[in-house]
Computed example of a mutant assay.
Amino acid sequence: MSNVKNLSLSHLKKQDAEKYKEKKQVVFHDGTKVDVDMAFRPSVQNDLNTELLKLFQDVIKKKEKADGGEITAVALCLIIKYFTSIEIKGAKTFNDYIEMYNIIEDNEYLQPIVQAFEPSELQKSMDSINNIIGRWTKDMERVIEEVKFKRSLEENPSDGNIQELE
């Protein structure tokens, strides 16, 4: 019988370091560079999803609108924030990320960064984001329906009562 070792934290750390160490360096036209993760950590994706949901909640609270193109732009900026070496400290709101996207795109940094990502990792990240958006949309639709129902009850209190048939 072979000598099988028990799983240990040090073994897990070693595997983790190996799995997520690969990076690709992108050098831009102005001599600056960025390191891009080749494998996306699921825990980091969860952090990204959490931040995206907070940004959505902010948009709702401020009663702002966000279209599909803006949501995609913000999602890409969050992917860049979480899976590259770019330091992004000033972006706190949905509109900050829209501004970031425009600056990155206008100055020809966006395509080289996006093209440097491993396509399957980028797709997994976008799928995760789309799942979050889908769940968020369903939750918002449910809340809207509840609000409409409560308003209709306030406007027509008798509509909410079940009347007995005689």
Rank of each mutant, 00 (worst) to 15 (best):
L76H: 11
N130D: 08
N3E: 12
E51T: 07
D58Y: 09
I144W: 00
W136A: 09
S85A: 07
Q45A: 09
F117N: 03
T93P: 07
I71R: 15
A91K: 12
K148I: 07
A116T: 12
N49F: 06
E105M: 03
I103L: 13
G69K: 01
S120D: 11
T137K: 05
K19G: 04
Q115C: 02
S85I: 15
K61P: 00
D127E: 14
M38C: 12
M1I: 15
E99P: 02
Y82L: 11
S152W: 00
G160E: 00
L12T: 02
G134C: 06
S120K: 12
E164F: 01
L110R: 02
V26Q: 06
E166L: 04
I129P: 00
V59W: 06
D106H: 14
G31F: 15
K33V: 12
K124V: 03
Q111P: 03
G160K: 12
L76A: 09
K61H: 09
K23S: 12
K13G: 02
I80S: 06
I98R: 15
Q111Y: 12
S120I: 05
V44W: 02
E146L: 00
S43T: 14
K54Q: 12
K138A: 13
N49P: 01
N6L: 01
S120G: 10
W136C: 01
N131G: 01
L53P: 05
Y97T: 04
N6C: 02
S125Q: 12
K54S: 11
L48W: 01
K89S: 15
E141H: 03
T50V: 15
T50R: 11
V114A: 09
K23P: 13
D30M: 11
Q123A: 07
A73Y: 07
K92G: 08
D159Q: 10
I162H: 14
N107H: 15
F94T: 00
V147P: 02
V143W: 00
G69I: 14
E121G: 13
N49G: 04
L165Q: 08
K5P: 04
E155D: 09
E87M: 07
T50K: 15
D127V: 11
E121L: 05
K21R: 06
K5I: 01
Y109P: 00
V59H: 00
V143T: 13
S10A: 05
N95M: 10
G69Q: 14
D30T: 14
A73R: 15
L110Y: 14
E99Y: 14
N161Q: 06
L165I: 04
I129Q: 05
D127F: 13
V147E: 04
V34E: 11
F40C: 03
E22K: 01
G134L: 10
N156E: 12
V143E: 10
K23L: 13
D35K: 03
E145P: 05
V59P: 01
K62L: 05
I60G: 10
K24P: 10
K21A: 15
I133M: 06
D30C: 04
P157V: 05
Y109L: 02
D159A: 08
D35M: 11
G69Y: 08
G134W: 04
I144N: 13
K63H: 08
S8L: 01
M100Q: 09
F149W: 00
Y109K: 05
P157R: 15
S85R: 04
D35N: 11
D16N: 08
F28I: 12
P119T: 01
N156I: 12
M38F: 05
S2G: 08
M126D: 00
R135M: 06
A91Q: 13
E146K: 13
T137R: 09
N102K: 10
Q25R: 08
E154S: 10
